[in-house]
């Protein structure tokens, strides 16, 4: 990944069976995009469970976390409910993996997104990204370091 900030491709995806979320709607605050291969698989579970716990730290930086996989919105709804996830899961379902492709993190072989993290600044530029081994939970330290770099006074962040 280049050091130069790069525009994050815009998208609009279902965040629930009857709701859509667009990246543009999140402008004005840092955004964490967490692409993960699939709902229900054990490693993803750990990764999203970890992010669910770390959420208050992300929020100190005013950041919004969204998870993205190719699972459909009904599957996401059941998964979110089962794991008590408090952040949206977007369905990159139709056309399948289209958004992941635009971010260069679609795995054609498995037909899923790669396990990839993007941190966007409040203007929608990609400031950090990391592609992990699909079997390995990448943790949250890289995300926190990136948010810290965006806003060194992160803990003192006050929503405008």
């Amino acid at each position: 990944m280049t050091r130069t900030p790069k525009r994050a491709p815009d998208f609009q995806l279902p965040s629930a069976p009857d709701k859509q979320l667009s990246l543009a709607a999140l402008r004005g605050r840092p955004v964490i995009l967490a692409f993960y291969p699939a709902d229900w698989s054990p490693v993803c579970g750990d990764q999203l469970a970890l992010y669910n716990e770390v959420l208050p730290e992300f929020e100190k930086y005013g950041a919004q976390l969204v998870g993205i996989s190719v699972d459909g919105p009904w599957c996401h709804a059941a998964y979110r409910d089962s794991r008590k996830l408090r952040f949206p899961l977007l369905a990159d379902f139709e056309p399948k993996g289209e958004v992941a492709r635009r971010y260069g993190v679609y795995d054609r072989q498995s037909g899923t997104t790669q396990r990839a993290l993007f941190v966007l600044d409040k203007d929608g530029d990609i400031r950090w990204h990391y592609v992990s081994d699909p079997r390995v939970n990448p943790g949250a330290d890289g995300i926190l370091a990136a948010l810290e770099q965006l806003n060194p006074k992160g803990a003192a962040h006050e929503p405008a």
């Binding site: 750990d46 990764q47 970890l50 730290e57 939970n137 990448p138 943790g139 949250a140 330290d141 926190l144």
Partner: peptide
Amino acid sequence: DFISGVKSGVNG
């Protein structure tokens, strides 16, 4: 403890 773990790369 939890936060120190997150920052140290604890992933599970």
